[in-house]
Amino acid sequence: MNPFKLAWTYFRIGMMNELQYRVNFFIQLLQSAIALTTGLIGLSLVFGQVNNLAGWSRAELLAVMGVHLLMGGVIRSAIQPNMERLMDDVLNGTLDFALTKPADAQALVSIREFRFWQLTDVLVGLVVIGVAVAQLQVRMEVLQVLAFIAALIMGAIMLYCVWLMVTSIAFWVIRVNDIVNLFEGLYAAGRWPVGVYPDWLRTGLTFLVPVAFAVTVPAEAMTNRLTPETMLFAAGLTLMFVVLARGVWLIGLRSYSGASA
């Protein structure tokens, strides 16, 4: 079974299903608007006091905010719902069903859910990024755009890997909802470039919860700050996270015996 084709089937059916619930769309739109407004107020408060924040100008910070919104949308539409379902499955023993399917179990548990309306955040993020680019008054080269997209994809992969590892803890301790809340709190920290934080927090945001790579690095790609070294480092780290997450998943799976009947 081709995992992409399978993912598409899940996506298609999930989307068809969610399109029936228009109210969700308006609620989501409202939420996105609130997130955008509070973000903008935060920015104007900061720039009422100073002219730049750790070397980032107002327009550049707007770009960071755009990426943060976009990535948040990706998390909430594609990553978080799947991981929540995985947690429930481990708790209820219904993971048995996924494990008796002729498909890679990790791939299967990662594509089953998709919250279509959460994509509003992605859209709003893209608009904010567009406005930021216009304000920056730089012309983005093709290479820069490609680097930006690559950085976004790698960032999303890293976030997925961390989330999968955290969720895999459920194999041992069953309930991990609190850890997920912690993760959300840390992701909120990505609203600002990681450079503004003290060293210890920056390290945590880089390696424990790779918000630095998910948000700051793509924003750097847009604002001409990205070095080839950072990009290479990001690629290496992504690979490491992928291997690590796979390992944790497989070990976790071995200690899963299913909730007894």
């Binding site: 079974m1 084709k5 399978l6 089937t9 899940y10 059916i13 068809m16 299903n17 209820n92 023993g93 219904t94 048995d96 069903f97 399917k101 002729p102 498909a103 299967l108």
Partner: peptide, 20 residues
């Protein structure tokens, strides 16, 4: 235990089985 998706019509869940 259930494997069908709670919010979907069974027909859609069948389609997912087909894909898997």
């Amino acid at each position: 235990r259930n494997q069908l998706t709670w919010d979907l019509p069974a027909l859609d869940s069948f389609d997912l089985q087909r894909a898997v």
